[in-house]
Amino acid sequence: MIIMSFLPILIVFIIVAFGIGIMRSNTKVSFGTRNIRWILGGYTIILVIATVISLSVLPNYKNDQKVATAAEMTKIEDAQTKAIDNLYSGNLVDLDKSFSEKKKWSFPFDEKSLDIVLTEGETGIMSVFAERKSENDGEIEATYHVGKSYIDGVDFTDKLHPPELLLNGQKLTVNNPALVTVSFSRFSPGFAYSQFSKGQHFSQENRSSVIGRDFILLKVPNDIEINGNISWINE
């Protein structure tokens, strides 16, 4: 590892030494024109073959989905933050615009009170909001809402796992989802190819990430009492 970190300096040193050496030698470095032609021709053929293989194999992994620009991602992140702020203030304004429902649960419930236990996992504690229904229908409805997540401009929202909800008597346990690990290699043209592609799929400006917010929204029968670390909507 240490050797690898010194390697670039070493190589630059070799290149500079090579250049200075040639400048001072007053003689041309030559392997013979015929040999150089063979080397250059062979190298060009290898490059052309590699390009043909690359152009026929790699497009199978082409990113077909639209890559979000930095501006779009900022807009999405701001909209999510605003919607969450609205939730904490007790209203559901613009919720559907910024979040999608990833999973729904429904539990029959005829107890007087509900204890909510939030299990702290490797991904922290889930935010839970609750809203009273207008009637006592003996059913608890839970919805897991998730905002869009972009890594390097690519949408990875589908990769996220939903949490686990378990109802045992009057105790509702919310187990946080397992941490999702995403690793990928991005084969991109260099800066010379992206310099004039402002806003295009591989433009430098797209290279940022937004991790979507998530929460659980409970709809509970009108007259039950809830104990636990939750925030109420419309109360």
Binding site: T51, S54, Y61, F184, S185, R186, F187, P189, F196, S197
Partner: peptide
Amino acid sequence: YLSTHLFQILAFYFKDNYSIIVDSLSFTE
């Protein structure tokens, strides 16, 4: 341009790539 393809194809076959995203170019680009 050509050698970029050479190293990308080498990286494709010889490295552990979990998942790959390829940004391709239009003719103008």
